[in-house]
Amino acid sequence: MMEIKIYSTPTCPYCKMAKDYISSKGVSYQNIDVSSDQTAAEEMVKVSGQMGVPVIVINGQTMVGFDKSRIDALLEV
């Protein structure tokens, strides 16, 4: 079972693109809105070592930004 988390803000276009893309693959994910949840924001900074959104975690693998080919690779495993 895939475990996918997306740390995002509601206003970030790349977050939306990433979410739409993952949905289009028929996979579900947990969306974490770091603009309203301070603890989650700190958790995101801890797992990614930086403060930019989106941060996408697929089965424990962390990526920063929306990188379609990297998502494809991680979803195929």
Binding site: T11, C12, P13, S36, G52
Partner: peptide, 18 residues
């Protein structure tokens, strides 16, 4: 960059709340 420096206030602004 992305450790406090950003070029997209719309994207990253909410992370700097408070």
């Amino acid at each position: 960059k992305n450790k406090g420096v950003t070029y997209c206030a719309t994207c990253d602004g909410p992370l700097f709340r408070g």
